[in-house]
Design a protein around this nucleic acid. Structure first.
Lengths: 344, 344
DNA sequence: CTGAAAGCGCTTACAG
DNA sequence: CTGAAAGCGCTTACAG
């Protein structure tokens, strides 16, 4: 191409490349007229700095890596767009990677390594698995990072920064809400193995239920991702036999949507035959007809705080201190919960 | 940090940096034993190449830029994840940017410029606006690019590569389908100004309707993005007055969801009171209770073909030829269409 | 098969 | 306020 470089600009405006660089970077140590002249030449020639070269020599790339664990959950897609917005506002660009959530070929480590090689200034990891969390702690010295949407239990002392909604509290709120409606016998559907988020939700729900003297049957998920199909399968098995419970709490909205599907197929009415509740408040849940009652994750807040935390860490350099930020969740009442049906 | 570099590896393994570079890049011009020795040292030291430096000197970054126009439409979120997968499979990484769809502060050009500065090897643009399309044509010499999900009308002779579903045909299929069900008087809701995609859909629908002697009232959208809220607003106005039509075709699924919401609020039944049809087949549309009949955009195909087209163009260098790939759409029958209600 | 040297396009002490 | 020079960490002809 013969792309135009800083050297060309220097020649054209009769100064050194050093001066051009200063003009381009708003360096105060330059005479205003000189700056103007240089910038005019840049404009006239359509000069565009090579950001790679800039990053290489300044050892700051102003790009943030994001590793998404799952393609099917809209949770992550939307979160990544929020992250992009916030990063942009702080002067950073996003490099988006997709990891495999499944156990065997987990490529998270490979991606972290790639991003470091790509010289990103920091990594944002929306992932609640204990393995991903441990990984981040292990790469802590190599690159600033923030876990987003999940926080490892405090007493584990894992050295990572995190911002998440308070899953323990949110699940308690859910149990209390169902209790208030009159439910005393409920099922907790789809706790995922190896996920801190799910462990906290489950524990919070059980603790509140115990305190309120509710009975809860827990049906864990065998998978490491929450999908509609999985919810449908689990619900089909559950609903086929006579159910003693009057409400189903799902560990994730996606599962609840699967439960809805199964209920539809069996001709069951929600909340007429049983109440249904989810967790996350993904976009789907607010849709007409769906109107799922759920506990909301504050996506925009998670993204914003995650980015801010990461940027602060980048600017400050190594520090050895970690922040674990918890955001209070909100219960979103919609149309899938009601008092339990009268039993005959 | 004192990050370890290729020079350290050279010293440690007793060869030159040239040789290390060869070992790292699978250059055949190196003795097998030498390569092994070097690679072993790399492994032992945990060496990780600086990809920025590599890109700078080889003038190939192996990253693709993607500029998303809209945050609220899940269409784009999902598409971007598909793009990421396909790119990865071809050895490319994604840099994700978000543009503003609104007219006044359109930042698409700024983002294209940024991405070029970032030395991406190519740009993927999921955007159907005529302005964005013209922009891509203008930057054609500066960077390989592909328009995705939209194709400018052929006779305009715009010099861009594109892969899209055949919007003209898809809309015809929709009109024919409604005709087959018995509808003769329908509304076309939400054609967007300045969008090639919408222009083609509208033209296709009208052409088929004319051929089939159907009456159609067109209610265009004033906005440049299709949102649920917008659909709801338009439908509320439409449904409040007695409607002569028996079906509503929406130019985008998001609008159809808004129509559903408005219908719900007014106590109208779909398809009992009127039939409803969308276009896109976003994830929302397949949900239980929603089950929107629509024309499907093949997201995975669009992403795959878009990436392949772009990579081919990158490998081949400048060529001056453009490809305009059209994918045949599919009609997805679900639960929102039925024969028109008997009139009294 | 291997290496010395130039170069990718910037930034950044350092000297003036 | 300005510039010459070294350097960021690689790749790539070119010579041997």
């Amino acid at each position: 191409m013969g792309r135009i470089t800083i050297r060309d600009i220097a020649r054209l405006s009769g100064v050194s490349v050093t001066t051009v660089s200063r003009a381009l970077n708003d360096d105060p140590e330059i005479r205003a007229e000189t700056r103007e002249r240089v910038l005019r030449v840049c404009r006239e020639t359509g000069y565009r700095a090579n950001l790679l070269a800039r990053s290489l020599s300044s050892s700051r790339s102003h790009v943030l890596g994001v590793i998404l664990p799952d393609i099917s959950n809209p949770f992550y897609a939307v979160l990544s767009l929020h992250i992009e917005s916030c990063a942009k506002a702080r002067g950073y660009q996003i490099m988006l990677c997709r990891g495999h959530p499944d156990d065997r070929n987990d490529n998270t480590e490979e991606l972290i390594s790639y991003l470091i090689g790509q010289q990103v200034d920091g990594i944002l990891l929306p992932n609640s698995s204990s393995r991903a969390t441990a990984l981040l702690a292990r790469y802590d010295r190599a690159i600033p990072s923030v876990l987003i949407g999940s926080a490892p239990p405090e007493d584990l002392g894992i050295r990572v920064n995190s911002v998440s909604n308070d899953n323990y509290m949110g699940a308690q709120m859910a149990a209390e809400y169902l209790h208030r409606l009159g439910h005393r016998d409920v099922v907790y559907l789809g706790a995922r193995p190896g996920s801190y988020t799910h462990a906290l939700r489950h524990a919070g729900f059980l603790a509140a239920a115990k305190r309120l003297r509710m009975r809860v049957e827990s049906i864990p998920s065998p998978l490491h991702a929450s999908t509609i199909a999985q919810g449908r399968t689990m619900a089909a098995a559950l609903l086929r036999r006579p159910m003693t419970q009057t409400a189903i709490f799902c560990a994730a909205d996606m599962l609840a949507l699967g439960v809805m599907e199964a209920a539809d197929e069996l001709g069951l009415d929600i909340p007429g035959d049983f109440s249904l509740m989810g967790y996350d408040n993904i976009d789907y849940s607010a849709l007409p007809k769906i109107r799922l009652t759920t506990v909301a994750q504050p996506f925009a807040d998670l993204a914003r705080e995650g980015v801010e935390m990461l940027v602060a860490q980048i600017k400050r350099g190594e520090s050895g201190t970690y922040v674990r930020r918890l955001i209070t969740p909100t219960l979103v009442e919609r149309a899938t919960c009601a008092p339990p049906p009268a039993r005959d």
